[in-house]
Design a protein around this nucleic acid. Structure first.
Length: 494
RNA sequence: GGCCUCUUCGUCUAGUGGUUAGGACAGGUGAUUCUCAGUCAUCAGACAGGGGUUCGACUCCCCUAGGGGCUACCA
């Protein structure tokens, strides 16, 4: 049999910001399409008017762009099957819902929310499984007419089979079968004329010639409904592939209470798109047992649906951070500058319109902190001591090495000052060797020499390598900071 | 409650009847004539339990337990 060109879609509903779970689904669809040389479609399922969220669309587009995922058809871009907003396809769904009624697969239901509420309460009270009681399923024409006269706008419900079974073959889960007796007469068309997810989704998937549906496992329970719908229409269903859920650290579906979940939050917090893509690709999928650093480009070549896991995956923030560090270390200094500059400006370390001088100074600082940077946003905090004549000293007493007498520290700093005044401040072993000699003179360990110098010069006890720092700072500032520290220490001891 | 589904180190996972059960993150230790980070080395850490099937089960089957999802005129 000839294989059809693969067509997959990501179909978010604009009810909130894009989150990790959604983007994982989007990514897998994207990768599958690219790997198979097929089409990736973006479709906006805006069928719930009550939950529409203002910034959602903008967020979807910018998230895709930021992550570097392109789609072949979708809003704005359009394509052969336009429009890609379900809200613009209403007549279509109404037509198909009506068709189902005519074929006897669906019916008008006049039950209002009051009645629905009532039967729900009764079911709860008598511990019966909840669900619509199919009151309108076999309504006579007279009764229907009566309801119409009362002015109630009906919904259209699917007439689910009462017995037998419905099954489908999931690409990763295998055969899934349910008894039709457990199915509901779910709503297809709401009373406001909008379709429900179930109707709109399958109508569009069919019309848009979607071949594979990759979606989260939370959709498994409604898949039999969808299969039945395809059957009622006489259409061939696509292949289904249900992706494992993404959980929070407590084992529940990932949500806000687990911390950041929206892609935009990660973006704002200093995460790189490469890190998000790489990390998310490994949520429920793996390549092999040794490689795990992949670019989006790599992934389009190696992604394999058959290697997707069945079990849910817990979102591990610390591993994401590690990935971010990996990708930050891969950045060129120019790129790193571009990304960190706004933060330096915000921190007030660089002027609003940075001068060339400021820019080239930043370019000298960044290599100093690149290795230790985990989040782009942390750059200013990690390097603020590189700015100004004197660093922002903390309390001296807290920072001084504990095991060394203050008098000795002062002597060490004075000796260092003498040494440094005489040589070039370069990141060279010469400087290191010269200072190292002080360990013998004062009979202390290396740390007792370098720590005081570090603190005197940077004002902190955790800094990048001392000699590169001194080199970037320049001789004048090194001397000034050393002198200032000695002075301060002397004041404090008197 | 009902239906569906899942189960290898704390976490992400490799594994497809015979392995010292491998890797990564996190954690421990050591090295890198200084701290932190990075890097390198190293340690610790798992097949949920019980029955089968088999010469042999992490791998196949059944049961139990535990987890998760769904159960809307939301997607």
């Amino acid at each position: 049999m000839e294989e059809k060109r693969v067509r997959v879609r990501y179909a978010p509903s604009p009810t909130g910001l894009q989150h990790i779970g959604g983007i994982r689904t989007a990514l897998f669809n994207y990768l599958y399409a690219r790997r198979m040389g097929g089409d990736f479609i973006l479709r906006i399922e805006d069928t719930d008017r009550t939950r529409f969220f203002e910034g959602a669309l903008e967020d979807i587009f910018s998230t895709f762009e930021w992550l570097g995922m392109s789609y072949d058809e979708g809003p704005v871009k359009n394509g052969k099957y336009a429009p890609y907003f379900q809200s613009e396809r209403l007549e279509l769904y109404q037509k198909y819902a009506k068709e189902l009624v005519d074929k006897g697969h669906a019916y008008y239901c006049y039950c209002d929310s009051d009645r629905l509420e009532r039967i729900k309460k009764i079911q709860e009270a008598s511990k019966l499984p909840p669900g619509y009681d199919r009151h309108c399923r076999e309504l006579s024409n007279e009764e229907a007419e009566e309801n119409r006269k009362k002015g109630t706008t009906p919904v259209i419900r699917f007439k689910a089979p009462l017995d037998g079974t419905t099954s489908f073959d999931d690409r990763i889960l295998g055969k899934i079968e349910v008894n039709n007796s457990t199915l509901q007469d779910f709503v297809l068309l709401k009373s406001d004329g909008f379709p429900t997810y179930h109707l709109a989704n399958i109508v569009d998937d069919h019309l848009m010639e979607i071949t594979d549906v990759l979606r989260a496992q939370e959709w498994i329970p409604s898949t039999p409904n969808h299969i039945l719908l395809y059957k009622a229409f006489g259409w061939t269903p696509p292949r289904f592939c249900h992706l494992p859920m993404v959980m929070g650290e407590d084992g529940h579906k990932l949500s806000k209470r687990h911390g950041s979940t929206h892609v935009i939050e990660f973006r704002n917090n200093g995460y790189l798109p490469e890190a998000i893509i790489n990390f998310v690709s490994l949520l429920g999928w793996s390549y092999n047992d040794k490689e795990e650093i992949f670019s989006l480009e790599d992934l389009t070549k190696i992604f394999d649906v058959d290697r997707i896991n069945r079990a849910p995956a817990v979102f591990n923030y610390s591993k994401l951070k590690w990935f971010n560090g990996v990708y930050i270390r891969k950045l060129s200094i120019d790129k790193l500058l571009e990304l960190t500059l706004p933060h330096y400006i915000k921190a007030g370390l660089v002027s609003e319109k940075p001068t060339d001088e400021e820019l080239s100074y930043l370019k000298k600082i960044l290599p100093l902190i690149q290795d230790r940077l985990e989040l782009i946003n942390d750059a200013p905090e990690l390097s603020d001591f590189m700015f100004g004549t004197l660093p922002p000293y903390k309390t001296w007493s807290e920072i001084l090495p504990k095991k060394v007498e203050k008098e000795v520290v002062i002597k060490i700093l004075e000796d260092s000052l003498t040494i440094l005044k005489d040589i070039e401040v370069k990141p060279h072993s010469e400087m290191q060797d010269a200072l190292y000699k002080l360990t013998e003179k004062h009979s202390v360990k290396a740390g007792a020499i370098f720590m005081p110098i570090r603190i005197a010069i940077t004002g902190i006890n955790k800094s990048p390598e001392l000699f590169p720092v001194m080199s970037v700072l320049g001789k004048d500032r090194v001397i000034a900071r050393l002198e200032n520290s000695i002075k301060k220490l002397k004041e404090e001891s008197s």
